[in-house]
Design a protein around this nucleic acid. Sequence first.
DNA 1: AACCAGGCGCATA
DNA 2: TATGCGCATGGT
Length: 276
Amino acid sequence: MATAMLEKNELRVPVKCFNLPLTLDCGQAFRWRQEEDGSFKGAAFGKFLHISQETDGTLVFYNTSDEEFNEIWKHYFDLERDYETLCEDFCRGDESLKTAVEAYPGIRILNQEPWEALCSFIISQNNNIPRIKGIVERFCHLLGDPLEDGFYSFPTAEKMANLTVEDLAPLRAGFRAKYLLDAARKVCDGTVNLEALPQMDIDEARAELQQICGVGPKVAECVLLYSCGKTEAFPKDVWVKRILEELYPDGLPECINGVQGIAQQFLFHWRRNKDR
DNA sequence: AACCAGGCGCATA
DNA sequence: TATGCGCATGGT
């Protein structure tokens, strides 16, 4: 981990193996917006963030205290993990993976809030990225608290638990609205314990999440991978299913054991961008 | 067990 | 400008 230096309201953090736009726009988070100058604005854990990346890779956090960086953003951007070694292992172990990693170096798995990831991936089902972003944005605007620059905090489960599908009509989330409400109610009444997920055995965590109506295997895997540190979670969307058929009909390579989810993100992005 | 609802962005006609 | 396609889940 590189050391952070504070200078003129800018916290500069040298990093390796990190591509900011790729990481924020590869279908794992839906609330980051790119500015004209290439920097990004967004919010997580109730905090607004303005961040950019310099050509040498250094991350620049604007108006961010050391404390906030250490408590929130260091883990959010998965900066404790050694992606250099990880990617070397991928490249050595499998030719297809090597192609994907070399085509899109710097993709990282974010550690989002479980509640936000749960809602985001419920919304993502049977849906495309532009529309997911629109629904999530309207959701935060309708029920979140204002932060800065027109960004809002993610709505809490408590605030939603007593709402009706009619209340959520402005989201235009369609049949997914009732799933969001079921999630909110089960989180509030303790049926589903999100805080316990990271420490749970993965199969136990899968079962915990799938108690929610509208959460099947795909949505559960996404929540576990993108917010609970379960790098072995392996969401299979249409693109990943194609990859499995085309490249790995006899099973996944050994070099990704335990970190299949991270490998999946490289393969997903590579396959999705291949035919165009 | 196969098939459709649900909404909307997108590719193709 | 119109038309059909895709999508994760639950319900029929």
